[in-house]
Design a protein around this nucleic acid. Structure first.
Lengths: 254, 254
DNA sequence: CGCGCGGTTGATAACGGTCAAGACCCGTGG
DNA sequence: CCACGGGTCTTGACCGTTATCAACCGCGCG
């Protein structure tokens, strides 16, 4: 089935298990390393002091991470928790264009002209790694593998947004929700957080914004999928009761 | 694997005609240089033989440039003419996610996993520069400025797709068209092709796909904008008769 | 307990999709 | 040069999906 293949392939970045070492470098003992931009870099290189450009810190639900207009001094890698990336409109309107989870790289929007275009907020408590852009450039010179990873991650990010565009421009409301749920679940799968029940970290309002529909239509789409028996919804908990049928919804109608 | 300076033609089957390699660097005499990824690189560095990774070639309307599944061996910079980037669906359906014009860099989709995800075709006769990715990497090591440019262009591309997402998820059909026309005109402006009348290189069907609506709705949106007096439409020629009002359409309703 | 907030459900209207027909454009060939 | 034909584009009538407006539910909290 094509559409699901699409989803799967979009998230096929080969994720490698890297054995743990011990050092003062936060990356060396990082449990999320396998999902980070350092995933395929020789771990020994990270012990090099020149590569100490990563700093980890905790975030609490609601904390801002960066703002539109801020200087683009860091990239951020999510270690734990969930974040949203949104575009603030003048009249108090927001449009969310990304939900980030462990392993996602944030802040690529600022690289074009040195300023962030979007706002990022924590949707839950969590932990981030900030990556100093200047020092990252130094590391890129020292180790071409870092450059490769960054390129790949940016290309990957580009492909994800293209998938989003595809969904927005071709799917119905119910299909958009189904597509989102499947894709979201797949991303969790890759983090070994697979479960038949997932908990959505975002409110209906935030999801509405991401999917480009109204609150009411989103709510009706949830109940539609629930009545069909494809999912079970309890507030922010979603159980996948018939994944095959849910995916079948996305097949081009005959 | 390509280590020679000659442009390889390892695409499957006959693709595009790449002429034999000239001794002089095509960038040095390139008229489109100002819109290219080399725009802020010292031109003298381009004369360095190690930087001879660019090959220009002509394309004719309808020519494929790359295909989904192709190895990602080149990036392409548009010198002249117009191209479309589309995603082919199994059942003969296409979804266009980008229209490229002079100065646009194509093929970033393949960097994530080494294979192109999309198809690119010429919408008009034109001229492209193919940039060998391997040799580009060499150039990036030699000159960090190249790395910076690539990063910036990828970040810029990301931001453009985010703008597209924003339009798709918040605008009405007429607003989507207005937004597209304004943005398209702005891009032409940057190429010093400013004119009150522009000629769209794509068919209604192609534009329909890009904007995520039906042919009929697109057509009606054109006539809506025309009846309002904001534009004048004659086939693919569009004149901007009241740009201010057209832009006012995009302001959040009062 | 009552209030506020997030979420759901219902009735109605508007927008956009669908189906069908007609107009226009343009290349081809008489 | 015009007539023809096929594809592209536009217009019209109708219908389905989604937005809008409004009421209601359930839960947490002061």
């Amino acid at each position: 089935m094509h559409t699901s293949l699409n989803i799967d392939r979009a998230h096929q970045g080969a994720r490698i298990n890297i054995p743990t070492y011990h050092s003062s470098n936060p990356c060396v003992s990082c449990l999320s390393k396998a999902y980070c931009l350092h995933k395929s870099i020789d771990i020994n290189k990270l012990i090099n002091p020149a590569n100490h450009y990563v700093q980890k810190f905790k975030i609490k639900k609601g904390d801002p991470i960066f703002h539109n207009g801020d200087d683009h001094k860091h990239l951020y890698n999510v270690r734990d928790g969930y974040v949203k990336i949104e575009h603030s409109q003048p009249i108090g309107q927001h449009h969310i264009n990304q939900f980030g989870m462990a392993g996602d790289l944030l802040g690529l929007d600022g690289w074009a002209d040195g300023k962030h275009r979007y706002d990022a907020y924590a949707l839950s408590d969590g932990e981030l790694c900030s990556i100093n852009v200047k020092q990252l450039h130094t590391a890129m010179k020292l180790d071409p593998a870092v450059t490769m990873i960054i390129e790949q991650l940016m290309s990957y990010a580009l492909n994800c947004t293209q998938d989003h565009i595809f969904s927005l421009s071709t799917h119905s409301a119910e299909q958009k929700l189904a597509y989102f749920l499947i894709e979201y679940r797949n991303r969790l799968d890759h983090l070994d957080l697979r479960n038949t029940t997932i908990r959505l970290p975002m409110s209906r309002e935030e999801l509405r914004s991401y999917l480009g529909m109204t609150l009411e239509t989103l709510s009706r789409s949830f109940t539609f999928l629930e009545n069909k028996g494809y999912i079970a919804v309890k507030n922010k908990e979603v159980s996948f009761t018939d994944l095959d049928q849910l995916e079948a919804l996305l097949e081009p109608s005959d």
